[in-house]
Design a protein around this nucleic acid. Structure first.
Lengths: 150, 150
DNA sequence: TATTATATGATAATTGTTATTTAATAATAA
DNA sequence: TTATTATTAAATAACAATTATCATATAATA
């Protein structure tokens, strides 16, 4: 499965293969998505890119992210009234856990999840295409800081 | 737990107890949320209310729905770029399954889900407050109609 | 019935996102 | 290397869902 190429190289290859141009801004955005573990939002990505290419527009970030989304290379994590966040490391459906205080998002390992999909298909007759499993809570670090503030 | 009062009565009582006024529009919105099984959106609720109170403003629907949400009496179901939908029958976290074609949302029964929360808390050290488990697929009815169209 | 704080309705404002348009530029071939 | 050309970027307008504002209306209470 992993032929030795990095996630960044893979994403760049996908763009190249489909005939999309490899502009510096685009590569920078791909790098950010491929390397960041913190599930950044558009605003955060834009903030990062402009450190290297100061004139980069928000619209460019939106377009690049949504292009990568269409190509199946990033997964969008939408939270109600919050802004969207993106996962470029693992673009396939997987559970997330978000801290409601510091807004950090991490990927827990949860077995016994694929079993759920089967159970569901059996029960409802649906053809399951995708799912979304997100937990909300308070991370260990924020639990500590709220103790201190008492 | 259920003292014999209907869901509608309960929601009205909560409003009354907290000192919120029981205006006709508000009661109408609560009725719609308490009785509809199809997880309506704001637009759909507004459409229903105006059948009885024709001048009801969209803003009133938004405000009432968000009041009930804050009181924990309706649960918001947000889907990415789609508009929000609301569940007034069961305002506590529970799985949904949505048909990507007809946009219908139903509530499947899934056991072995609370176990997942425990597994997660153990693994991550998070204090779990809430969760969201949504499946996307094609419902039996839409599966049939797409066969016909071949 | 009068009082008063709260809710409504109409609409303006805001926010996240998408579309548009002109200028810039990556890829290609001469 | 340079010229060509279609694609991309930047700036900004447009958009849709939602929220805020404020004058008017009204539910609750005395």
């Amino acid at each position: 499965m992993n032929t030795g190429e990095t996630r960044l190289e893979h994403m760049v290859d996908v763009l190249k293969d489909k005939g999309f141009r490899l502009t510096p801004q685009r590569i920078a955005i791909v790098e950010i998505l491929a390397n960041s573990c913190d599930h950044p939002g558009v605003e955060q990505i834009h903030c990062e890119v402009t450190k290297r290419f100061s004139t980069t527009s928000l619209a460019t970030v939106y377009k690049t992210v949504s292009l990568l989304k269409e190509l199946g290379e990033v997964m969008e994590i939408g939270f109600g009234d919050e802004t969207n966040r993106y996962d470029g490391k693992n673009p396939h459906p997987h559970p997330h856990i978000m801290c409601v205080k510091c807004k950090s998002i991490t990927d827990p390992d949860l077995s016994s999840l694929t079993a759920l999909s089967w159970e569901l298909a059996e029960e409802t007759g649906y053809q399951i295409l995708s799912h979304r499993l997100d937990f909300f809570g308070i991370c260990p670090k924020c639990q500590k800081t709220s103790e201190h503030s008492h």
